[in-house]
Simulated assay, not measured.
Amino acid sequence: MSTDSSSASGRFDLRSTLSALGALAKEEARTPEDLAAIQSAVAGLQFIQLNGKLDDFLDYLQDVEKAAERATSVEASFGDMAEAMKWLCAQAEPRFGARVEVAGKPHLVVRQRKEMWFLIPAPPLPSFEELTGK
């Protein structure tokens, strides 16, 4: 999926989006909170692109509800942390943010550095309705 297609086609255009956010930031009526939110959005999009996750983000934009379901689904379940860590170490490239269960409790796959993956307890997730107001 292209990231430089026109917005008229309904596809996400990273360059146009960053340009629009830049234009919004330059408007005189912006509060410090508005500017901080715009800067955070720009930084988030750049982070997504730099970490090779733009295609995942584009998939998310295509179908937010299905993406939200994938985000809440459990990829694997383990009886204890030792079993979970053995599985994690065996993964060639774990999916960042994947949810797993360890002894019945949710955990997320995260990394501190490129080579250092680990599991952390997962925070409670808001429902799709809470996120979208539907």
Rank of each mutant, 00 (worst) to 15 (best):
P106R: 06
L35M: 06
P94T: 01
A90D: 04
D80Y: 04
L58M: 13
F118L: 12
S19D: 11
A8R: 10
A29L: 13
F118Y: 15
S127C: 05
A20I: 02
R113N: 07
R30A: 13
R95P: 00
K134M: 08
R113V: 00
S16F: 11
R70N: 06
E65W: 05
A25K: 15
K66Q: 14
P123C: 10
A68M: 03
K114W: 05
L21S: 05
L119V: 04
M81H: 09
P126A: 10
T17R: 09
T3C: 00
M81G: 01
E75D: 06
G133I: 01
A90S: 15
L61N: 06
W117L: 00
E115Q: 07
A36F: 10
G104T: 05
L131W: 14
V102L: 01
G79W: 04
N51S: 11
E83C: 04
A36H: 08
G79K: 02
P32M: 04
K86W: 02
G44D: 08
H107Q: 00
A29N: 14
L45V: 07
Y60L: 13
S16H: 03
M116C: 00
T72M: 06
L14H: 08
S6A: 10
L18H: 06
S127D: 07
T3F: 14
K26D: 13
A43G: 01
K134P: 00
I38T: 03
A103F: 04
S77M: 06
F128M: 09
A20H: 10
T3H: 12
G97F: 13
A71F: 09
L108H: 12
Q62A: 10
E129D: 14
A68Y: 15
L88N: 06
P126Q: 09
K26Y: 05
S6M: 06
S19E: 12
L50H: 12
D4T: 15
T132S: 09
C89T: 14
S77W: 02
M1A: 12
F96S: 03
F128R: 01
K105H: 14
K105I: 02
P94C: 01
F118D: 06
R99Y: 10
